[in-house]
Design a protein around this nucleic acid. Sequence first.
DNA 1: CTTGACCTTGGCGTCAACGTCAAGCAGGAT
DNA 2: ATCCTGCTTGACGTTGACGCCAAGGTCAAG
Lengths: 128, 128
Amino acid sequence: MIDTTTTWTIAQMADDYDVTHRALRHYEHLGLLAPDREGQRRIYHRRERTRLALILRGRRLGFSLEEIATILDMYDDQPGEVGQLRYLLSQIGDRRADLERRRRDIEDSLRELDELEQRCAEDVARLS
Amino acid sequence: MIDTTTTWTIAQMADDYDVTHRALRHYEHLGLLAPDREGQRRIYHRRERTRLALILRGRRLGFSLEEIATILDMYDDQPGEVGQLRYLLSQIGDRRADLERRRRDIEDSLRELDELEQRCAEDVARLS
DNA sequence: CTTGACCTTGGCGTCAACGTCAAGCAGGAT
DNA sequence: ATCCTGCTTGACGTTGACGCCAAGGTCAAG
């Protein structure tokens, strides 16, 4: 069952995901996160955590926060209209192409790394 | 056979790789490229082209130019000393771990994209 | 009531990765 | 001779993604 009751403070979020609270506020400022308020204090629900996880993965993959914003929008509330759905499908296609290109880049890099390692290991063997 | 004679101007490089000459000079300033000179003019050889390709791939993958510099160093002139070789091997390990993490991130993203697309396609089918 | 921990909103600072002039050289075409 | 094209070296500007205070609110513990 999905937990919809637990909430977190900014400090817990920062701690759990290893980001600064400054970063969290920055993401909020850009509209990537929208925590509730309890008086003045931010309170983060489940939704914000999954969004933050997406943000951080996007960052690791080298997306800009602006790109990440459009990605988050894609996952947000599904549109009920066919035109919007078609648009979303095309966006998905774009994203997929992008990711697949990156994957190719990574696999090429890994292959080259393998070669280098092998040459390197041979040299070590020869010299010792 | 490998071409070692052809050379290129900064404009040709910029054109071939779709970067500005400003970027090329920037990479040179950071030591990522080191074209020869013919009088004042920069002339780029084969080596610079492969390096530039590596730089751009690194950028697509979200590496900083500083990280890219260390990657390029790895591929540069193999060290002849065992200590250096061991160090290089450890660096290779680090890089590989990094790349593999990115690959996992990408594959996760692609899977989620697939799910979203499927839900989306079902909605379109239902509505039309 | 004060202290301390934790939070808030500004707002300036910084670093990377270039962009964007400005001013000038060098060599071929008119 | 001058013009144009393509290059050169500065050097200041910009954008993104925060870092880093300052100044103050809130609330439980002592």
